[in-house]
């Protein structure tokens, strides 16, 4: 384990906070680092390095570039246990999602998330696999009654996505 000293005065805390506020993560300043969120966070318990509490500390101390490529935030399952127990009203889930928006803007999106997004655009399902055989086996229509069956619904969804900020990422 290697430890290096951080020169805090060289960090531009204001710029990082401004970005976070712009993306809806202004509650970052309310966090007092008590650790309650991390004690129940699935991201932390599965062993990923940048779970809510640590992520907030990095951001509070002006680290952004260093952590931009870390994929931990994409493992947040939005269970909201953090929001339920946070004693300071930080709403950690929303702050994590604000960080994700910065990551997405910088195209720091892990492959798993890119694939899900592209699947969503092309099929209407973020998680997509061919289940037609299984469905037939249990007596169901091989094509589920979703965007897969109704191309006009898929068209509507694609129109919505094309109009959203996600289109700017150029993934689809």
């Amino acid at each position: 384990m290697q430890v290096e000293t951080v020169n805090l005065t060289q960090k531009d805390r204001k710029a990082v906070l401004a970005q976070m506020i712009e993306k809806g993560g202004g509650n970052l300043t309310k966090c007092i680092q008590c650790g309650a969120c991390a004690s129940v966070c699935p991201v932390a318990i599965t062993g990923l390095p940048l779970y809510c509490k640590r992520l907030f500390r990095f951001l509070q101390t002006g680290h952004l570039e260093e952590i931009l490529d870390d994929a931990s935030s994409w493992a947040c399952v939005a269970c909201n246990r953090c929001t339920e127990i946070c004693p300071r009203g930080v709403d950690p889930f929303h702050v994590v999602f604000a960080f994700r928006r910065i990551q997405a803007q910088e195209l720091a999106i892990p492959a798993s998330a890119t694939t899900s997004l592209m699947n969503f655009y092309t099929t209407g399902h973020a998680v997509y696999g061919d289940a037609s055989e299984l469905r037939q086996k249990v007596g169901l229509d091989p094509v589920p009654p979703s965007t897969l069956k109704y191309p006009e619904a898929l068209k509507e969804l694609q129109t919505l996505l094309d109009e959203s900020p996600m289109a700017e990422l150029g993934l689809f």
Binding site: C34, G35, A36, C37, S39, V40, I45, K53
Partner: peptide, 29 residues
């Protein structure tokens, strides 16, 4: 231990699982 406890779960044998965080270790405990 410096770090707030986020939850307690009941375990068999009337025991309790305290889910906490150690700020100095930087790890959930």
């Amino acid at each position: 231990v410096r770090g707030k406890v986020g939850g307690i779960e009941k375990l068999p044998g009337d025991r309790l699982r305290v889910m906490g965080y150690d700020n100095d270790l930087g790890k959930p405990i």
